[in-house]
Write a protein that binds this DNA or RNA. Structure first.
Lengths: 221, 221
DNA sequence: TAGATTGTTAATCGATTAACAATC
DNA sequence: TAGATTGTTAATCGATTAACAATC
């Protein structure tokens, strides 16, 4: 459950804490843009609906300089520390397979680089889009994937193909040297232990929505 | 941390267990489509990388009929039980605001109904898309939102606008009677306690990818 | 100084896992 | 019967929260 820190010291934080960091990051960006210079853990906690001790512990794990009694944390510095911890400062190349609607939406999204990821090439076997340009990136046929990944040393693969072909694409990516896979297809991908597969599970989210409505309904009746 | 069950009995499961259910669901669908009739907890556990006791407990929480020693669980029945538990059998209407690339991708996705959600209308203030059709749904100007939501008694709202306008749309949705919000904008939305906000945080996922690469890199050097 | 905030140590809470009897 | 699998009770593990001394 622990996330290995990429810095020199060997501090690790829990996966739960890790998932909270981007929340802090987004909020701190808002503060910075509004010109706010200092912020305290209680304020962050209240905004995020978290416990203030938890916030302090999370921040202590990623920021060595820490906060100051009375004044709290410096927004700019904290933002930099969290960004560094999350790898947002270190842009990695990525390839995307499946240039359908979702794939195109991701290709069009300009915010990825802000979070350390840049899509350098897209692939699809659909004849309509092969060879076409999609948001200034050419869509290549899938059989060009291994060569390109090896040549550019790409390590992140994004899968936006239908469920049926996702495992096949996953296998091809692994063969091409991809180490980290971001999967949007609604299947659980099997890969060697050293490959990290991050499933973007829409089904979970949708279930949470339905669940909440159903629970609420019962309470109301 | 517990999720209120929508059925008659008052059984609750942890949010962690709840999030695993769609995984089982997807896997069971594959099995059913392959004609497999029975499956055991150890097999599911191995496939999902989970502990078999955990799987058994999760399944026990949603399926009253349970499994049989030696043979395990009936795939079809289990699928039905999980689907019912997750609300996939009870389709709810939803509205979407923000018909940009991501919004369009969601509009084009035909799988939502399988998971209990149906987008009945989309809204956007961008002149280019207002009044246009996007995947056979007309895009309405945002000021039509309250009336339509109230008229159709829509309770799910999907936000795919930029971060800057997300809170404003959130507020409008709440005023329009929306009870559950699925937020794709990279901001933490503030809403009354009884409104359920599900944040689809891409920043978390991207950070996890970077993190894994960084950790791996250090180990390799 | 007084008081808000910090960081840390200890207590609590809850989820996961191990052990085991029951079943077909 | 033997053995795989079930469901449950107890032990373990880890995350969250409470309590508190230190600081500016």
């Amino acid at each position: 459950m622990a996330v290995q820190d990429s810095r020199d010291d060997k501090m690790t934080i829990s996966i739960h804490a890790f998932r909270r960091l981007p929340q802090y990051y987004n909020y701190l960006k808002l503060l910075r843009n509004a010109g706010v210079e200092q912020v305290s853990a209680p304020i962050i906690a209240k905004k995020m609906g978290l416990n203030e001790v938890q916030v302090r512990k999370d921040l202590a794990a990623v920021s060595e300089r820490g906060g100051k009694p009375r004044t709290g944390f410096n927004v700019i510095e904290l933002l930099r520390d969290i960004g560094r911890y999350l790898g947002y400062d270190n842009i990695q190349d990525a390839v995307l397979v499946g240039a359908g609607y979702l794939g195109s939406a991701l290709l069009s999204y300009k915010g990825f680089e802000e979070y350390g990821v840049k899509i350098v090439a897209a692939f699809d076997n659909n004849n309509e889009c092969v060879g076409s340009e999609n948001f200034s990136r050419i869509i290549y046929p899938v059989d060009k994937l291994p060569d390109l990944c090896k040549r550019l040393n790409v390590r992140i693969g994004i899968i936006t193909v239908p469920g049926e072909s996702a495992q096949e694409i996953c296998d091809l990516m692994v063969k091409s040297g991809i180490q980290v896979i971001w999967n949007f297809a609604p299947v659980h991908l099997l890969a060697a232990k050293e490959i990290f597969v991050q499933n973007e599970n829409m089904a979970v989210s949708l279930a949470l929505l339905s669940q909440h409505l159903a629970a609420h309904e019962e309470g109301a009746q």
